[in-house]
């Protein structure tokens, strides 16, 4: 009965082929270090879910950002849990993505034929750091305000175009409501879109080229 429905579905969607390509494939024997990639993906999913939930109450304006986060922490049921997970998963994600990069590096897995997979991975690493940087301005607390002041000032020291970059990041000469909304836009729209797209390419390449094997002594 079930198989009849699956074959009907497959006739129209090719779902069985997709399943075979994605799940039913052989890969070399790998160790536990190879789980870091899927762990990054898992943490990203956690961030998407908790992030969407936070956006239900969060207000990206200097007048209300702090109060709305306080409300999430003390007024909304389980708000502390949702924000707690989002906060810690952000730190863990930076750590796990970085370790994933180191694993790929030390196993030489970025070499032929996986050079492009590596490049997409670097984009994902930078985007993850970008998420961290844009994310911690949003609660509009002391740490947020000052860390962002310092962070954007760093960008402002680039010779020649520094002042331009600084104004572009802050949306003006100082940290203001404009800064907050553009960091918000970057944090919930631009960077997630980049990450989603590049994760798609990254996974396609991983499946197409196969997971690299653990190199042997002589390789």
């Amino acid at each position: 009965m079930a198989s009849k429905w699956i074959s009907r579905l497959d006739e129209r969607t090719g779902i069985v082929g997709v399943y075979k390509t994605v799940f039913d494939r052989k890969i070399p024997k790998v160790n536990w270090w190879f789980t870091l990639g899927s762990a990054s993906l898992f943490l990203f999913s956690v961030q998407v879910v908790t992030g969407i939930l936070l956006s239900v109450y969060y207000v990206p304006s200097p007048d209300h950002a702090y109060d709305s986060v306080q409300y999430i922490m003390t007024g909304v049921q389980f708000g502390w849990l949702i924000r707690g997970i989002h906060h810690w998963a952000a730190s863990l994600m930076v750590l796990v993505v970085f370790l994933h990069m180191l694993r790929v590096f030390f196993y030489g897995a970025y070499k032929y034929p996986r050079e492009i997979t590596w490049v997409t991975g670097v984009v994902l690493l930078l985007a993850t750091l970008g998420m961290g940087f844009t994310g911690y301005l949003l609660p509009w607390n002391q740490k947020a305000y000052w860390a962002t002041t310092v962070g954007t000032s760093i960008a402002g020291t680039v010779p020649g175009i520094g002042d331009f970059i600084l104004r572009a990041l802050r949306g003006g000469t100082d940290l203001s409501a404009v800064t907050l909304t553009r960091f918000f836009a970057a944090h919930v729209w631009m960077l997630p879109l980049v990450i989603l797209t590049v994760i798609g390419i990254h996974l396609y390449l991983v499946i197409r080229n196969g997971i690299s094997a653990v190199p042997k002594d002589h390789e």
Binding site: V49, L53, V56, G75, V76, Q77, F78, G79, L81, I82
Partner: peptide
């Protein structure tokens, strides 16, 4: 379950 409580909180 917490997420449902979170959404329905008000």
């Amino acid at each position: 379950v917490p997420a449902l409580g979170y959404l329905a909180s008000p």
